[in-house]
Write a protein that binds this DNA or RNA. Structure first.
Length: 862
RNA sequence: GCCCAGAUGGCGGAAUCGGCAGACGCGUCGGACUCAAAAUCCGAUUCUCGCAAGAGAGUGAGGGUUCGACCCCCUCUCUGGGCACCA
């Protein structure tokens, strides 16, 4: 079978369409059953968000890399799982709905259809039976189920707190989604607002997420980004008494060795004690300052122009070791959300405190001096490094590290402090006031109803009830969060008339009245809209649905598990499938998710592991980031620059095989590299040359030689070796150049049918359509991607004689063919006989001879 | 400011247990085929000097270790990425 008639030219359009259809029809790359007895290989791509714009040129880069691996592993006899799916919840579909009034589900389905078609046209070896879609209720049933598990364990809670609010998007955002005071998506300004929010207690996992990092096979820079984001620091919590009051102030410091240099304390404007302890004289000024700080945007407060501001509170603290009074100030350079929201200021040894003290004329008291190193003696303030203590009573002369230990111990003995660990990581703000997300499967009932419900022996909603109730106050009413039971899942998105969120931060779901205002039967779990007739009976209670939805990241936290048993109705993942397929052996995607998706997914995975829902603590043991492909001008591709390359057009003009090959040939997979339109011609020519190697002008197959040219066989085996090793190490660019070398050689000499066939197999993972076509024209059985991978014969690799470089004083002067096992003496004798070397050796004595077998002989003269 | 990665011909990039720098591709130049063009094929192509044979220089800059350094060490410059009042 072949794609088209007997035409002699390389008709990639026909060929590619033909084989794509065949792979799809025959389900060529569907996985084999988990009891097939083969070893497994799981290749995972970061699944795309199906945007309206379609695939961009970066998608085929990562997908081709994983596809090469998948096809290679099939050939090596593995049972390969290479799935694809859609991360389809999110803002753009909702914005499209706002513009057109069309339901996001419809637009999303269209976009998915387009993406699927584009991905198929690239010829990837995907198991389409396992396609998943995060917006499918059969998928998000389990996203909601995992949320309820978190809720049950007390890891999902509600709080009214200052959160990032984006007026443009009319939505709250997580810390991870805010960059320099603007939204990660859309680059709109954001501000602080107090809103009731669902929050996931990711901070409870800070240590677990940090510890596991070391063992992961990940790019080091990504691990470091996660480490920095988690931001563990070890220090001391110190309690300062307040003059004339019974309560005290806790501060956190990593530099308790500088405690004798403390000259004032600083509270964040948000500090709860601040309004209470401000003196009568200072109160007005303090309240004014708090108000101003509250109104400042984060950019003003934390941005580049950060002139220190602050006011004196009028209160005094008492130094825990010297007993001296020190003034308490308020300043917005101290963050309310880190540590205890209060710091001890040591202006002599901290740049920020130094700047503040200078501006407000506060005392600067040095207590650390540099370790003397001879020449330099003077010390410029602030001196922020470790050093030797002075003016520090019993601790004088200690170095900083020792002093930290001893001072912490001393404070502990006095009951004034203790060693403590802090993290920069904040809890994950999880709710969104949007339509197009997973509904949070919770409803709220009043406290009285809740207490009555608890006394029921057969409360329907007990399954995910946490030991400590989640509540919030609305006027006089206390609402308690009740989880749906797993039988109520999925909680589907209701239809709404308008997708517009309100300016007050209410979800569009709020308008779906029959969805929101409900009656719930606590024994049977039955739920009715309140608008229907009100049933009688004690166990019916009024309830309100939660109207917030989950953020886009939720669905991608566990999709790698769903691929293993995408149609399972009993659990998010079938245990047998999980046991067989385990974790992805290769996970590839962009580096932009270093602290978003990749951190959230690790959190969920670890949580599911801790509740024994799954058997492994890390989702992605092996991670790789493909580099960005830049525009032809070397800058980032963007519509405004007009340097965007459209993959559809390249497929039309050059074919999918050429596009795949070119993206892999561009450079190292993880490097950032510019697109070059002329460069793609080179790959196109290469494939045409391959075609001509197999097919004569009249369309007939080539007349193969009985045997290869003598020089060709070692080259073929060298190519097998190089391509195999390069694929294993993801060095696709050099694998391709080796195949080019082989074809260049084969074109000008006689090639056997057998060697031609082996070469095709090497090419197949890179350019599968042309390989499949030529394979079938050779009369071989479908599919080339399942034919056993060729092995090289080491005997055939090495030539019998090796080329030795002759050097004089390290400079190459001549070269020489010598037997491989040639000794140092033989090499030297041969070298001295060379005419060419004579002028360099004249009149000189050879002082030293460097002999590297099979490589070089270096003669060192005086 | 701090942390990480990187810098090789006209261009993308090869080559690292320290052993012929510039594989492969693009571009350019020359040639073959052609009435001509496209396509294809062959040859040249790091720079400087030289008719040539050849000589010298050369992997961001400067120093060091070594028989020998793109590779290891020190200092610096630049580029990309991340963090950024986290005490």
């Amino acid at each position: 079978m072949k794609a088209h008639g007997d035409g002699g030219f390389y008709d990639f359009q026909k060929i590619e369409a033909f084989w794509q259809a065949r792979w799809l029809e025959e389900k060529t790359f569907a996985t084999e059953p988990i009891d097939c007895g083969k070893k497994k290989y799981y290749v995972l791509d970061m699944f795309p968000y199906p945007s309206g714009a379609g695939l961009h040129i970066g998608h085929p880069e990562g997908y081709t890399a994983s596809d090469i691996l998948a096809r290679y592993k099939w050939s090596c006899g593995y049972n390969v799982l290479h799935p694809m799916g859609w991360d389809a919840f999110g803002l753009p579909a909702e914005q499209h709905a706002l513009l057109t009034g069309q339901a996001p589900a419809i637009n999303t389905a269209q976009n998915i259809g387009h993406f699927r078609e584009q991905i198929r046209r690239l010829g990837f070896a995907i198991d389409w039976e396992r396609e998943i879609n995060t917006t499918d209720p059969d998928y998000y049933r389990w996203t909601q189920w995992i949320f309820l598990q978190l809720f049950k364990q007390g890891l999902a809670y509600v709080d009214e707190r200052p959160v990032w609010w984006c007026p443009e998007l009319k939505s709250v955002l997580a810390n991870e989604e805010v960059i320099d005071g603007r939204s990660e998506r859309g680059n709109h300004p954001v501000e602080r607002r107090n809103l009731r929010q669902w929050i996931l207690r990711i901070t409870a996992y800070a240590d677990r997420l940090l510890e596991n990092l070391d063992a992961l096979d990940w790019p080091e820079s990504t691990k470091q980004q996660q480490r920095a984001w988690i931001g563990r620091s070890e220090g001391t919590e110190i309690r300062f008494d307040i003059e004339g009051r019974v309560d005290s102030l806790a501060v956190y410091t990593t530099r308790c060795d500088t405690i004798y240099g403390v000259t004032y304390l600083v509270l964040a404007p948000e500090h709860p004690l601040l309004p209470i302890l401000a003196s009568a004289a200072q109160r007005g000024e303090v309240e004014d300052y708090i108000e101003r700080a509250r109104r400042k945007s984060d950019l003003e407060r934390g941005g580049l122009a950060r002139e220190k501001t602050g006011v004196f509170s009028g209160a005094q603290a008492i130094h825990p070791l010297t007993g001296k009074n020190i003034p308490i100030w308020v300043a917005d350079y101290v963050l309310g959300s880190y540590g205890s929201g209060a710091v001890m200021a040591v202006p002599a040894h901290d740049e920020r405190d130094f700047a503040f003290a200078q501006k407000f004329g506060l005392a600067i008291l040095p207590v650390i001096q540099p370790v003397p190193k001879g020449d330099e003696t003077a010390c410029k303030l602030p001196f922020c490094d470790d050093g030797i203590l002075f003016h520090s009573e019993a601790f004088n002369g200690l170095d900083s590290a020792q002093a930290r230990q001893k001072i912490t111990a001393q404070l502990e003995a006095l009951g004034r402090g203790k060693a403590c660990v802090q993290y920069k990581l904040r809890d994950w703000l999880f709710s969104r006031q949007r339509y197009w997300g997973e509904p949070i499967p919770i409803f709220w009932i009043q406290q009285g109803d809740y207490e009555r419900a608890l006394s029921l022996p057969d409360l329907y909603f007990r399954e995910f009830l946490p030991s400590k109730a989640i509540s919030y106050q609305e006027g006089d009413i206390t609402w308690i969060a009740i989880p749906l039971s797993s039988k109520e899942l999925p909680l589907q998105l209701p239809p709404v008339v308008s997708y517009q969120p309100s300016d007050q931060g209410e979800s569009p779901l709020r308008r779906a009245e029959d969805f929101c205002e409900i009656l719930v039967h606590l024994r049977t779990g039955e739920i009715r809209p309140q608008s229907q007739d009100i049933p009688s009976g004690e166990d019916w209670v009024f309830a309100r649905r939660e109207t917030h939805t989950m953020p886009q990241w939720a669905g991608s936290c566990w999709y790698h598990l769903r691929y293993l048993s995408p149609h399972d109705l009993q659990a998010p993942v079938d245990p047998g499938s999980l046991h067989y397929w385990g974790s992805p052996d290769f996970y590839i995607g962009g580096a932009e998710h270093a602290v978003l998706h990749l951190l959230y997914a690790r959190f969920w995975q670890r949580f599911l592991f801790d509740i024994a829902a799954i058997d492994r603590p890390e989702p992605y043991p092996h991670l790789f980031h493909q580099g960005i492909i830049l525009g032809e001008d070397g800058s980032k591709m963007s519509k405004s620059r007009g340097n965007v390359v459209n993959p559809d057009e390249v497929i039309r003009s050059h074919g999918a095989d050429t596009l795949r090959l070119y993206e892999m040939f561009l450079g190292p997979l993880d490097a950032m590299k510019p697109w070059n339109t002329q460069g793609i011609e080179g790959c196109s020519r290469f494939l045409k040359k391959v075609w001509r190697l197999f097919i004569q002008d009249d369309g007939m197959g080539q007349d193969w030689a009985e045997e290869d040219d003598e020089a060709l066989l070692p080259r073929l085996h060298e190519t097998i070796r190089k391509v195999t090793e390069d694929i294993e190490q993801l060095r696709f660019n050099t694998a391709i150049s080796q195949m080019m070398i082989f074809v260049n050689g084969a074109t000008s000499s006689s090639l056997s049918r057998h060697s031609a066939k082996v070469f095709l197999q090497l090419l197949a993972p890179f350019a599968p359509h042309i390989a499949e076509e030529l394979w079938s024209r050779l009369g071989e059985t479908f599919s080339i991607s399942k034919a056993p991978w060729p092995r090289f014969d080491p005997q055939l690799l090495v030539a019998e004689r090796g080329r030795i470089v002759l050097m004089v004083n390290g400079k190459p002067r001549d070269e020489l063919d010598l037997p491989l096992n040639c000794s140092r003496e033989e090499a030297l004798r041969a070298a001295l006989a060379r005419e060419k070397l004579r002028p360099y050796l004249d009149e000189k004595t050879i002082r030293r001879i460097i002999w590297v077998p099979q490589k070089l002989l270096n003669l060192v003269l005086d």
